[in-house]
Nucleic acid binder design. Sequence first.
DNA 1: AACTCGGGGAT
DNA 2: ATCCCAGAGTT
Length: 354
Amino acid sequence: MTIHNETAHDWPQLLLGWFRTHRRDLPWRTSPRDPYKVWVSEIMLQQTKVEAVRPYYENWLDHFPTVASLASATQEEVLRQWQGLGYYSRARNLHQAVCEVQARYGGKVPDREKDMLSLKGVGAYTAGAVLSIAYGRPVPAVDGNVLRIFSRLYLIEDNILSAKVKKEVTRLAQDVIPDDAPGDFNEALMDLGASICIPRHPRCQECPLVSCCLAHEKGRETELPVRIVKKDKPAVDITVLVVSDRQSWLIHRRPAKGLLASMWEFPNAVGKGNAGLDAAREVLKKAGIRAGSASGPVGTLRHVFSHKVWQMTIYTAPYANGTLLDKEDWQWLPQAGYTQVPWAGPHGKITAIV
DNA sequence: AACTCGGGGAT
DNA sequence: ATCCCAGAGTT
């Protein structure tokens, strides 16, 4: 992926100029900067809005003002102070990492990237943030804000959630991060992303980088970034009622159109529990068949389609009485010949269960 | 690369 | 309801 933005002469300086007058006043932005406080704030801010963090951060510093105080706390106490903030492994990892800093580095937060990254709960983003903000090291800190801003600035049309784009943005940031103000640069990107270059309706008129932004130049700022999220497929509960007459199974052919068209399946209905069983019995009744009492569940199957998931619960029941009304789409299949019909997806597997 | 982990606010 | 958020660890 090769990206050029000829209009982006020296946008970092424009950004820093804007930051001087627009920087947010946040409790962890002390002067001088305290590496421990920066670290705590970065962990708390993962996937969490500033306003949600603020009270927790204040409370945290009251209880654990230093590396040493946090290192000497119990995990129970640590979790109690984190209670309600979510993502509790963040608290456990931070506690463990701070204990290691206390033991291995004498309580001083490491100022080398390799050492930071070795700490539990510290990834590329957090390491970059702490090193740049607290220690003035020119290390990028690529988070959701930075991905969004860069995708617009450089007109990156690929999925920003992919590893490929994150890698490319990291490289771009590495190229432009000012050596003399890396912390301000990274924090300025956060503030810009929080107030101007926001996800839905970016305020381009107020943006210091409007003259450098390729997306704005093309009028496509609202189309970016591209975020392709795996959305969970709807799950459908299916109750299957396998009816057998000693040597044969009763099976049904699905409609000629739609999902698994014209393939054969065991009698079934949407629903689970007694409601599912009742619905399945209703299907049998319409076919002219009555079954005895059901046993089971004898098994479950989970089948994933491209767009939905079937969660199947399988019951068995003996044939009681009745005659098939529809000989086209229903049949008694000899159990020995189960390979002779085209099964509707997962239904073929049921022959191995019952 | 996909999944999991919380909770709250905006749309 | 769905999206989104100063991500990282596990598989």
